[in-house]
Design a protein around this nucleic acid. Sequence first.
DNA 1: TCCTAAACGAGACGGTACGTCCTGTCTTTGT
DNA 2: ACAAAGACAGGACGTACCGTCTCGTTTAGGA
Lengths: 194, 194, 194, 194
Amino acid sequence: MSIEKTHAKPGRPRSESVRRKILQTTVGLMIERGYKAATMKRIASSARVGKQTLYRWWHNRAELLMEALLFYAEENVDTVLAGLDRRGLEAFLAAIFQSITKETGEILRGLIVESIVDEAFASLFFENFIKQRQKRLEYEIKLLQKTAEPDPQKMGIAIDIIFGAMWYRLIFRHRPLDNALANELAAMVTQLVS
Amino acid sequence: MSIEKTHAKPGRPRSESVRRKILQTTVGLMIERGYKAATMKRIASSARVGKQTLYRWWHNRAELLMEALLFYAEENVDTVLAGLDRRGLEAFLAAIFQSITKETGEILRGLIVESIVDEAFASLFFENFIKQRQKRLEYEIKLLQKTAEPDPQKMGIAIDIIFGAMWYRLIFRHRPLDNALANELAAMVTQLVS
Amino acid sequence: MSIEKTHAKPGRPRSESVRRKILQTTVGLMIERGYKAATMKRIASSARVGKQTLYRWWHNRAELLMEALLFYAEENVDTVLAGLDRRGLEAFLAAIFQSITKETGEILRGLIVESIVDEAFASLFFENFIKQRQKRLEYEIKLLQKTAEPDPQKMGIAIDIIFGAMWYRLIFRHRPLDNALANELAAMVTQLVS
Amino acid sequence: MSIEKTHAKPGRPRSESVRRKILQTTVGLMIERGYKAATMKRIASSARVGKQTLYRWWHNRAELLMEALLFYAEENVDTVLAGLDRRGLEAFLAAIFQSITKETGEILRGLIVESIVDEAFASLFFENFIKQRQKRLEYEIKLLQKTAEPDPQKMGIAIDIIFGAMWYRLIFRHRPLDNALANELAAMVTQLVS
DNA sequence: TCCTAAACGAGACGGTACGTCCTGTCTTTGT
DNA sequence: ACAAAGACAGGACGTACCGTCTCGTTTAGGA
């Protein structure tokens, strides 16, 4: 049996609603006025919040922005349910690509910036975001594998091809994240791991 | 062809050696202390150069950093000569991957930052760097195509898969840019476009 | 006049011991670490007390500091009893000067700050502290006056000379508040008002 | 013979006009909106100047405010020329008192605050301001002394009585800095040192 | 003895000033 | 005219403090 009464922390508890308000404001600012305009001061005054409160919840600007993205994604992205065959993977990828709108794209690019600029944030972002998505994709890919024993190296390559192409187009915006890409990637990966 | 003195601009001419010194210093700073530490002021004083000189040669920080990379690449990367078949493509990719060391990687990541943060620099970087590499790769891929008429959409996907995977690993450093990746990518692309 | 039980306020009564603990801590902090270090937060946590408790007893920082001084003075200063002649005034002044130690001096200086910065506190401090001392001094001075009708203007000057010199040395600490000053002031004032 | 060519410091020299503009703005702010309103940010933006520039010229807010006062005094206070007798001293004191207007008073009180709050500033203020005025007054007092050998202790007391009364009335504003005070002080000091 | 309401410790909250840093431009002297 | 040096305007960052608020806990006095 576990310890019964976990002593609540003393003092006024942090207000989850304040946190949410901040995240919403941050998302709004990033979408409307771009990554750079999402200043800490601006976020604070827009959200009618003290700057100190921002730094109480997040260590620095980058962490706040990341969480703002996760918050946004959580609210707006439908849970994608993929199937067992190539068509399922196609649908899965297409859904992901469609979730990357002009707005989310802006935020995602901003997070790349922070990952590069701030080493500490990089691992945070990788663990909390990138890795999660990789695992999810890996799970999908495994569904269409016939062999019981998957080759980890090939799996890594499969993942990096898909997300690589995605980020590459997301960053440079030279070609769209359309269904054609989703289908082709699905086809290639299917063949690679089967 | 006239050997006549083309009216030289008055005043002291710009010193090419100064320009080189700046680029070297910039590369050094980025490598040793990271992208963020490569401040304009720091670059200037490290290179024993006035800040104005930096802005005379380059419009802003991002352009300087990009040129520093090109300068570095030019000095250290062997011109890659690829062959006509899949083996040739493998070698080509392997050579590119090997050219991305800890140092060049740092710089490349920095340029991504600027591309995202600064719209104007983004197109500059894309035209002067990314597009060039894409064309070079496209040329290589065409060499191993049998069909005279290449499908432009497939070509785009082929390029984005290769460079996408490369940048993806370059940014997040979760897996190495090794020969295994080069070989697998070569194989996939070969099949895709043939 | 009713001796009826005035309905005591319901709820837990305020703890006088808490109040005293706060005042002592405040005095200690100001003395040891200076006026600036006597932050409300620091006072609270040093006294193992909630910040709210401070504001329950005092409206703001300045009022707390003033009361801390009064509290300290009350504890440490002997009631000065002056005589009827110049010698009496000398003794009176000397006693006052001696009561201004390093500790009380620090606090008094802090109260000057608040008086200047905060208009509302200024009148509070003047009424509760400065004026009281002026009246006390006026009483002493009158004792050695022969004439029944004192000149109010001369009295004002006498007071301001004495307390002026005192505060001036207290603030800038360029010369000590010694007996020589007390004697000289007593002599001058005696002559002035006689 | 001294060294001929003192090598000028390299780089753009500091602009004296910028410094003056800042001082004027600071004085204006303090006078119009009070000591507290003279924020560094507000000073900077009012003077159309970067905050960095403020900190280049002065180490902190207090130093800037002090110099603003000195600047103001220098511009607005007539050089007081006193005579050789008591009448001369009376005129001297009256002139000083008159120079302390509502505006300068506000600034002077602000400097007292900083002196108390910031130990480092205190000595700066004492050396650059208080001491200068004391010396000037001492000079005046010596003019009316008959004895060749002045008593340093009495001199100290004379100075502290005059400036003490002045600051005391300046801080608490309970009585005006009028001619009556000047005359009485002059009389007392004359007798004290003769 | 139990109930109730205010005091209490703790600390989150909105707001504001501080002093540092960086970018890109401007202004000197020296070559 | 260019170059080195560094001052300049502007603005973001992260820290500190004030006075208010909101939790869970404690404690007196009235029922």
